[in-house]
């Protein structure tokens, strides 16, 4: 068994999943991976079975948080030291996993694959949300995280158990903010990401607004009152 498990949550990613997983198998055999099929209604699970991929097949749709947690639980039970959250649609690039892993081995609990660790964040409507959440996290936790909405995050041994077994630790910015407040050591490593090549993004304008309100209340209000369960 390797020390790092790549968890790939996949919801209706039949068009992308083969390319993503084949790349990992061929070029990155030093890592283990597992695809978490989140109750897809397309051929995602069938494709994975046919190709013989490592697969956690959830019978119903749990959403990203539930699917990723399934992967974390699997990693925790199998005893992996590091887990990375990796997109099933091909946005994330595997050559940067090594950089993230190295940072984690250097003692960081959470390593975010950041598009803006060294590069400047562009002024676009899409980045406005990112800036707002970044500001909220800074107010709540006192730490500046440039790319807080990045979906490429690596978690170390101190964090995996907590994320795997508890409620309210979804892979979202509010959890990162809460972890920082609890004393987790969070850092960013510069990565590049690709645009989605197939399928549609989940976020439209209305959903983005709801998401922003939820994140604002959660980061500024809920996490402020939340008991610090972590012993870090």
């Amino acid at each position: 068994m390797k020390e790092l498990l790549i968890v790939i949550p996949a919801y209706n990613e039949a068009l992308n999943i083969v390319r993503v997983v084949e790349n990992l198998i061929e070029n990155y055999p030093q890592y283990d991976y597992v695809v978490v099929n989140d109750g897809s209604t397309d051929e995602t699970a069938a494709v994975c079975r046919e190709k013989g991929y490592q697969l956690l097949d959830l019978p119903i749709n749990l959403g990203l948080a539930g699917a990723f947690q399934a992967g974390l639980k699997y990693a925790y039970q199998k005893g992996y030291r590091y887990v990375i959250q990796y997109d099933g649609d091909g946005q994330h690039r595997a050559e940067f996993i090594a950089d993230l892993l190295e940072a984690a081995k250097g003692g960081w609990d959470v390593v975010i694959g950041s598009r803006f660790a060294e590069k400047k964040k562009p002024f676009s409507p899409r980045m406005l949300g990112s800036r707002l959440i970044s500001a909220m996290v800074r107010i709540a936790s006192g730490t500046k995280i440039q790319d807080v909405t990045s979906g490429m995050r690596l978690f170390g041994p101190r964090i995996i158990r907590i994320l795997a077994l508890n409620m309210n630790y979804g892979p979202e910015p509010d959890t990162i903010s809460y972890l920082v407040k609890c004393g987790a050591r969070v850092t960013e490593v510069q990565v590049e990401m690709d645009e989605r090549t197939a399928g549609e993004s989940y976020l439209n304008l209305a959903r983005s607004m709801v998401y922003m309100v939820q994140m604002a209340i959660s980061i500024l209000f809920v996490q402020a009152f939340r008991k610090k369960e972590l012993e870090l």
Binding site: M167, N168, D174, Q214, R226
Partner: peptide, 13 residues
């Protein structure tokens, strides 16, 4: 109740 994590954040909002 929220402090003790008795509710999911989405429901608590």
């Amino acid at each position: 109740k929220i402090r003790n994590s008795k509710a999911q954040i989405e429901d608590a909002i």
